[in-house]
């Protein structure tokens, strides 16, 4: 590697792993159209952290993380119950849970502060994260968790894929949609809980969403989407951390998010499949062709009603697009193929 120094190497390793694994996992939630669940659950971890601190009164990270996990898990179960037993829209319940859990967390925090044990600084660390204080042990933990998540995803790959793309069929196979959705969400919670420490509550959702949105622009295949997404996520982690480390006062989390956001913009613009630039030129060419061949198109659609003037007929004849039969103009096979190829450009938008 480059000569980055020990601390920076550790931090880059950590954000790379976190970006990769959350990018991969994010694809599952984004394709399920529940992209913002990460945002909701990451806010919902606050009361758990506070309760864990109140109960055990240590600042030991592992204990607080367990609290965060439990609290996000409770939020997840609540979301599931509300979704299944009320008519309340999912995004409304997410917003409510997100905000009120966070409020409850603040209540607990203000109680803790009153007893003089913690400071407001703790909360802002929770909101914004602090990647720079990462230690070697943290990297080991992230590696372990990333491995666990990765293996789980690989083991249940077939089932999860089926669940995401055809839930009705998945249920008809006798599998439980609730278990599948629960599995995905638990994995997301695990990632969130370790991610919060680095990029904070608010930006954690970007790590889940942005890589998969960017990757989706390049592929229609699920496994490629997941793989690209992981790649983009870890790349974002590396570049973001490096950029933030080489400039003064640059917070790591936001820089990573901006790098990922830039990836999304680049993907939207330049993707060879659906990129805006490609589609723009495609459109220009399409319009030009329609203009030039409009009489031929009309002939293709209505063989008996089209009148061609001399110059047009001359041009089409010279390219063998039409032929003259018994004094009538007729479209040739080559002409038909040409029209089809013009039309195909516009229809080809899978």
């Amino acid at each position: 590697m480059f000569n980055l120094g020990y601390t920076l190497t550790i931090v880059i390793l950590g954000t790379m792993l976190l970006g990769g694994i959350s990018g991969m996992l994010g694809t599952f939630v984004v394709l399920r159209r529940q992209a913002l669940i990460g945002d909701a659950l990451s806010h919902a971890t606050l009361p758990g952290v506070m309760i864990a601190y109140m109960l055990i009164n240590v600042r030991d990270l592992e204990v607080l993380l367990i609290g965060a996990f439990v609290s996000a898990f409770v939020a997840m179960v609540l979301l599931d119950v509300i979704k299944n037993y009320t008519r309340i829209k999912f995004d409304t319940s997410m917003a409510l849970i997100l905000s009120s859990f966070f409020g409850f967390g603040q209540v607990l925090l203000s109680h803790i502060q009153k007893t003089g044990a913690a400071s407001q600084a703790g909360l802002s660390r929770f909101i914004f994260g602090q990647a720079a204080t990462m230690l070697r042990a943290d990297v080991y933990m992230i590696t372990l968790i990333a491995l666990i998540v990765f293996i789980t995803v690989m083991v249940f790959w077939k089932e999860l894929k089926l669940y995401i793309f055809d839930e009705a069929f998945f249920k008809a196979m006798g599998l439980s949609a609730r278990v599948a959705s629960g599995l995905i969400t638990v994995l997301v919670v695990i990632i969130i809980v370790i991610g919060i420490r680095m990029v904070g509550v608010i930006l954690m959702s970007a790590l889940l969403i942005a890589p998969s949105v960017a990757a989706r622009q390049f592929t229609n295949r699920f496994y490629l989407n997941v793989a690209f997404s992981g790649l983009i996520g870890s790349l974002g982690g590396i570049i973001g951390t490096y950029l933030s480390a080489t400039r003064a006062n640059m917070p790591t989390g936001p820089v990573i998010v901006i790098v990922l956001g830039t990836f999304v913009i680049v993907a939207i613009m330049f993707s060879p499949r659906t990129g805006l630039i490609k589609r723009y030129f495609q459109n220009v060419i399409y319009k030009k062709r329609v203009k030039r061949f409009r009489k031929l198109i009309h002939l293709y659609e209505h063989p008996s009603q089209t009148y061609l003037d001399e110059t047009e007929a001359q041009y089409f004849l010279s390219h063998d697009y039409v032929m003259i039969e018994d004094g009538n103009v007729k479209i040739t096979r080559k002409g038909m193929a040409r029209i089809r190829s013009i039309k195909a450009v516009h229809v080809d938008e899978s």
Partner: peptide, 8 residues
Amino acid sequence: NEGAAIGV
């Protein structure tokens, strides 16, 4: 989709 757009 909508959630992803908001999140980004």
